[in-house]
Design a protein around this nucleic acid. Structure first.
Lengths: 195, 195
DNA sequence: GCGCTGACAGATTTCAATATCTGTCAGCGC
DNA sequence: GCGCTGACAGATATTGAAATCTGTCAGCGC
């Protein structure tokens, strides 16, 4: 198991994800992580000052895996309305896929995210900033008409919570969900559009 | 305590709410309710087949107290856009007030509502039907332009979840909340408006 | 007859003893 | 010196026995 590999924070995080996957959030202990790494649990505390900070780091990795592909979409050229819709649908798809493919892991992520609320807030700010960028672009293109892109971005984020906030995950399997997504997106894009 | 009053379902519900308020959801037992009513707990089971059904009935009462004033607004005459905004703000205010004034009771209500999901679904359907009514009116007035009022009503409901779904209650105290409400309402009303 | 009582069985919760975990640190070995 | 170990104290979780609760029902009293 050990492979004589140096013990880096990165390696600890990878193994921690494995342990979380195998044991579940409630039962996964620092001792389990250390055992999987074939070191004493004291060594883990050399890289992370507490169990909470280790969990936070795991949460951060997960959230970065969500925002990275979105940032890519936000950076592409093209008409803002199309891009915004693509961006939002990508966000919803990413979340929906996660909960469908591995609901147990999603529950773990959800609890973890609740704890690491600083990290989650930063993630939200990051996503809203991306939306703001797209909206600003849309205003420049003459496609959108909004007073304040920052406020509008927050509003878009708030108005789509049903489809990206984990609290509503139990509705995502519903067959009417895709219709509801369409309806909300239509409404919001009409609301942003210059006339 | 007893007052020799006949034991009706209504009286049981009132006292049950008292007991919930005093003991909290987790600790309130059917025996507590019976004791407060000065009867044996067997008598309570004459009116409600189970503890779950008693809780469900309490939840139903609570939800009816939310929807009744809204139904009144929906029934009033006047321009649909104004009415819709008033209706939504009334919904948000009702919820926000509850959570601010008595957060503990709100937590009780929240857990109860999770259990009584049939009752909650019916409540949601009721609210969406009210919105649908307002939208249909707005279309008739020429103020709104929507393909399908039912779908649009559901979309309005989905898009305002941040401000009425209890899962987001912890954000309602935030000072930016009122700005965010304004932003979302502006966006949605623009989205519905005929041009 | 009709509604209430109170004892009962099985399910659930509580509580305290026990075990495990978190976070620290002196000291070992490379 | 530097990083790791493993023993330790205090905090947290687990466990199983005892207490309480849910839901039923035969029988009492109006």
């Amino acid at each position: 198991m050990n492979e004589a590999v140096v013990l880096t924070s990165e390696r600890i995080l990878e193994v921690t994800e494995d342990v979380l996957r195998r044991y579940g959030l409630a039962k996964a202990t620092v001792v389990d992580v250390a055992r999987a790494l074939d070191v004493s649990h004291g060594s883990v505390y050399r890289h992370f000052p507490s169990k909470a900070s280790l969990r936070e780091a795991v949460a951060k990795r997960w959230l970065e895996r969500v925002s990275a592909p979105l940032a890519q979409i936000a950076a592409e050229p093209g008409p803002a309305p199309v891009k915004l819709e693509r961006w939002l649908r990508e966000l919803f798809d990413a979340k929906h896929k996660r909960v469908c493919e591995d609901p147990e892991m999603f529950a773990t992520y959800l609890t973890l995210a609740r704890e690491a609320c600083t990290v989650v807030k930063a993630h939200k700010q990051d996503l809203i900033a991306q939306v703001e960028g797209i909206i600003t672009e849309g205003v420049a293109q003459g496609a959108f008409d909004v007073a304040d892109p920052k406020t509008a971005a927050a509003a878009i984020f708030d108005a789509t919570r049903s489809f990206h906030h984990p609290a509503h995950a139990d509705e995502w399997a519903d067959c009417t969900c895709s219709t509801r997504v369409d309806a909300v997106l239509t409404l919001l894009l009409r609301g942003l559009a210059a006339r």
